[in-house]
């Protein structure tokens, strides 16, 4: 008895909230939840888009002196650093593109459908969860390779590359940080949805 009387007004408030400023709102909570849901989805879209752009423009070309024969003077060679050269950054890029597209689609879906459809609500929670997991793994991979680039690893003789490609490394760090914010936003979206489920289930 209690559950049915609680869940129905929350649906009505959610749908009315967008069309006409919610006349006669009894419970203010569902509307705040829905508007913050839109805001967070938009934030996820923006952060993943920024991460994609920042990494995409990170190409850097430098001339490096290379000594082939010790008696001759060093020959300057042009080397370039691109994100396509590292598999981890390719993975990061692909996952961020997927997240960006998903955030846009889910924003449109959740605005268009209103709070009425319960199936969509559950589907969005599950897809958000999968997206958050993929984003976190991509961030981890990119951050690990970036750390090797920054500090190197003497045990396996992997030299650092960030002393040569400074601008490229700054782009990578900024991109990973922004993308981590995006992944946390996806996590927050799930927490928000679960909180509203828990509130409704009393």
């Amino acid at each position: 008895m209690e559950t049915s009387s609680f869940s129905k007004p929350s649906n009505m408030d959610g749908t009315q909230g967008i069309e006409s400023q919610g006349t006669g709102v009894k419970v203010a909570n569902p509307r705040t939840v829905r508007s913050s849901d839109f805001f967070l989805r938009f934030l996820a879209f923006v952060t993943s888009l920024v991460a994609i752009i920042v990494l995409a423009v990170s190409k850097e070309t430098k001339t490096v002196p290379v000594i082939i024969i010790p008696s001759l003077p060093a020959i300057s060679v042009e080397v370039s650093a691109k994100w396509q050269y590292m598999q981890a950054f390719v993975f990061f890029m692909v996952i961020n593109i997927i997240a960006c597209v998903y955030a846009a689609i889910s924003l449109v879906l959740s605005i268009a459908s209103g709070a009425g459809s319960k199936g969509l609500f559950l589907m969005l929670i599950i897809l958000d969860l999968v997206m958050a997991a993929l984003m976190f793994s991509a961030n981890g991979a990119a951050a690990a390779v970036g750390m090797i680039g920054l500090h190197g690893n003497s045990h396996v003789r992997w030299n650092k590359v960030c002393d040569v490609f400074g601008s490229n490394c700054r782009h990578v760090v900024a991109s990973v940080v922004v993308s981590t914010i995006g992944a946390s936003v996806f996590l927050l979206l799930i927490v928000l949805a679960v909180v509203s489920l828990q509130k409704r289930s009393h």
């Binding site: 598999q87 993975f91 969860l129 997991a133 793994s137 690990a144 992944a183």
Partner: peptide, 17 residues
């Protein structure tokens, strides 16, 4: 989920390299 998935991604990136 967040911790384990990010750890898997981190170690996987290094292992692939």
């Amino acid at each position: 989920v967040g911790i384990v998935v990010s750890a898997t991604g981190t170690a996987g990136g290094i292992a692939y390299t």
